[in-house]
Simulated assay, not measured.
Amino acid sequence: MRTKENKESLISPHLSLSSFEMGRDDVNVVCTYGKISIWFGRQVPDVVIGQIFLGISRIDQAAVHELEMVCDFDEITDFESNGYVLVSYARSKDGYKTTFNVPFYSKKALFNLAGSVTRELKNENAVVDCYWTGDDSDIMRLYEELSNIKGWKIKNINYKEDAKDKHYE
């Protein structure tokens, strides 16, 4: 088991992160200040998808996933009843072009998002982008939260170039 000092020394306290990449062979999570991009491989277990979404929600309940799709008008209320928040819709030739936010404060919305990712993985790998306001400490808290997943590790850490230049001058 790692000590708190070791966890804190994973990133430099003198440099600002540009990106922090973590995961395992079947999932990759890249965190930046405005976005968390998650790549799910086709073999990732359903439980890991849920652990990742719930882990993000524990660190930043204001995080959202933006979902754009074309659907029938009647389906809009179905998505809303599943915890999705309608942001916009417009009539199109194939139905209604909609934009929903999937709020990470809603376990119901996350459950439905996880289900849609699982269905997508039957045919292809999936990518889910989440928008958040996380900073270096939130990224490290997220790493600690997700490190409970079997096989979880740091894959890559990138620092902002301007911070490096200032640090070594």
Results as ranks from 00 to 15, higher is better:
Val87Gly: 00
Leu121Met: 10
Glu124Ala: 15
Phe40Cys: 06
Gly115Cys: 03
Lys108Phe: 04
Arg58Gly: 07
Leu86Val: 09
Tyr96Glu: 09
Tyr96Arg: 05
Val85Gly: 04
Val87Tyr: 02
Leu113Val: 02
Ala63Thr: 13
Arg24Ala: 14
Thr99Pro: 00
Ala109Asn: 01
Tyr96Gly: 01
Val85Thr: 07
Gly34Tyr: 02
Ser16Ala: 10
Cys71Ala: 12
Phe104Thr: 06
Tyr84Pro: 01
Thr99Ser: 06
Ala62Phe: 04
Val30Gln: 08
Ala126Val: 11
Thr98Asn: 01
Val128Tyr: 04
Asp74Thr: 11
Gly115Asn: 15
Leu67Phe: 15
Lys108Ala: 05
Lys35Gln: 12
Arg24Val: 00
Leu110Met: 09
Ala126Lys: 10
His14Glu: 13
Val102Met: 01
Ser106Glu: 02
Asn112Tyr: 12
Arg91Thr: 10
Gly115Val: 01
Leu110Phe: 00
Gly50Phe: 03
Asn101Ala: 10
Tyr33Lys: 11
Val127Glu: 11
Pro13Asn: 12
Thr32Ala: 08
Ile49Asn: 02
Ile36Glu: 03
Val48Trp: 06
Asp46Tyr: 06
Ala126Cys: 15
Ala90Pro: 00
Val29Ala: 09
Asp94Trp: 07
Val29His: 01
Arg91Cys: 00
Gly23Val: 07
Asp25Gly: 10
Asp72Lys: 14
Tyr131Cys: 03
Arg58Asn: 15
Gly34His: 01
Asp60Ala: 06
Val70Arg: 09
Glu66Ile: 13
Val48Met: 11
Leu86Thr: 01
Trp39Ser: 12
Phe40Asn: 03
Leu113Asn: 02
Phe40Gly: 07
Gln61Arg: 15
Cys71Asp: 06
Gly34Glu: 11
Tyr84Cys: 00
Leu54Lys: 08
Val29Lys: 01
Cys31Trp: 02
Val70Phe: 02
Phe79Pro: 01
Glu124Asp: 15
Phe20Ser: 07
Ser37Thr: 11
Ile76Cys: 06
Glu75Arg: 10
Val64Lys: 07
Tyr105His: 14
Gly55Ser: 06
Tyr131Ser: 05
Ser92Lys: 06
Val128Asp: 06
Lys35Cys: 10
Ser57Gln: 09
Ser57Asp: 08
Ile56His: 01
Thr133Gly: 15
Arg58Thr: 10
Tyr131Ala: 04
Lys108Cys: 05
Lys35Glu: 14
Val117Asp: 04
